[in-house]
Design a protein around this nucleic acid. Structure first.
Lengths: 260, 260
DNA sequence: CATATATTTGCGTGTTTGTGCATGATTAGA
DNA sequence: TCTAATCATGCACAAACACGCAAATATATG
């Protein structure tokens, strides 16, 4: 949305790099030659930008351009296999208190996929999601009604993004919002590079009566630049972390913390 | 080095290796010659890729290609592949003529999933679908932009239904519509019980410049109650059927029939 | 306002990487 | 064994790259 260019107005390197980073995360990969033409600068400047972004650890370079850090190919399944047991038990714990007839709004993450799989088959549920993998898992549930929110799919999250999805969420009113992707510091945080997702998640939280947060141990204390919501917006946190200091602080914010 | 250098977007070696690794793990084994053709590079480059992957301990090489390092306990993907070599070759045949830069509107079926997997990784495509499994497969394609149309998901087709999806399709204008679920009699037919899907499919056909129909042998001559469109609405039929009588009739309706 | 300093940019130079082709070596299969 | 296919190695070429330098621009300071 910010890509509006005034044809000849020269952008500062910072601005340009911000736009490039956005493009990389949206498209998966960009070519130096194409960027040079788009911005009306030489390829050298683009290369300098790419090097800066690479040094900052935000993109991965290759000959001809740059790509997103985590390539889509080495993918979801690999991440899912990582810390599988931990995610499994978090998912199980979070699924336990879900009552019959509930409507759930579920974001995209490997942990919430476990959560969906752990939901009792005896429950009649309504599961709404933007993520293809969550939708696929939810369809295996015998009684769930599954609604997929559409849009352009992000390669990394394998989930819908953009204004369409956000608008659809704004029109919703659900019992539970189930999140698994956020880092937790003083609030729920996301890396700045997917700031579109941040809007999506805060819309999800607003649409829900209660917000459940599922977080593996590595998520706690992970400060990221973009704050989606204050920690008090969360109703309950399910985590494998044993970091008593942080957990105590979260409890004192009024969050029901359950460790597994 | 003159001649027409490929206009196709060249993948970096890293990206190519990631895709190859995926293919190896999905298919069990790959052939160097086939990969070279798919990626539009020489066999030498493929061999270098395979050597790198082998050095990294990710695949096992053999003369002619490479194989998965550890064969997982019988996978349900494997069962599907074994049972449906027919679908595989139909998908491959239908994928072959798709040009670079095309926009595809894809319906839900196991056959079109094969089609999506068979699309050359060297192509820049835009894949729009209502089916979660198609979306998941499309996200593995390195250059595709994937758009998921939202809505309530049907349990059987694992795909969006309803007025929302139909409206979204009405607003589209695409190059190819790829269908795999219809029966074929005198026209494209669907069982009466999913008449909502019939509306969806006819909207998809109307949105497209060309309609490709992928049909396993059992689909031909299968009369069902609801007619989605006349057979002449189809541009090309890819099928494993050898039923000369029906195929002749279809050809005479102006459809380009290709048997595999 | 003028000058000094810093930043950014484009171009030239040499270096690295990726690729394809040629030439032998190796292997699978008859 | 023999034969054809596959493979490794060396080489050449083009594309992409990093580095240094000078001109242009922006920013700061007296």
């Amino acid at each position: 949305m910010t890509a509006d260019r005034k044809e000849l107005a020269a952008l500062s390197p910072e601005e340009r790099q911000a736009v490039i980073l956005e493009k990389v995360n949206a498209a998966g990969r960009v070519l130096a030659a194409g960027l040079a033409q788009e911005f009306g600068v030489s390829e050298d400047s683009i290369r300098r930008d790419l090097r800066d972004l690479s040094d900052a650890g935000l993109v991965q370079r290759f000959h001809g351009g740059a790509a997103r850090l985590v390539t889509p190919a080495l993918d979801f399944h690999r991440r899912e296999a990582l810390h599988a047991e931990e995610k499994q038990s978090i998912g199980r714990a979070a699924a336990a208190p879900i009552p019959d007839g509930a409507t759930l709004l579920v974001d995209s993450s490997t942990t919430v996929v476990r959560f969906v799989r752990a939901l009792s088959p005896a429950l009649s549920l309504r599961i709404i999601t933007t993520a293809v993998d969550v939708a696929a898992a939810a369809l295996d549930h015998p009684l769930a009604e599954v609604v997929m929110l559409g849009g352009r799919l992000g390669r990394l999250t394998r989930s819908a993004t953009g204004a369409g999805a956000i608008d659809a969420i704004r029109a919703l009113r659900v019992d539970y919002c189930v999140l698994g992707t956020c880092g937790i510091d003083h609030g729920l945080t996301l890396r700045a590079d997917d700031f579109e997702d941040a809007h999506l998640k805060s819309a999800m939280i607003r649409a829900a009566n209660k917000t459940l947060l599922l977080a593996t141990a590595d998520k706690l204390g992970q400060a990221a630049t973009y704050e989606v919501a204050p920690i008090a917006a969360v109703s309950a946190l399910f985590t494998s972390s044993r970091d008593t200091a942080i957990l105590k602080a979260i409890r004192e914010a009024g969050v029901d913390v359950e460790t597994v």
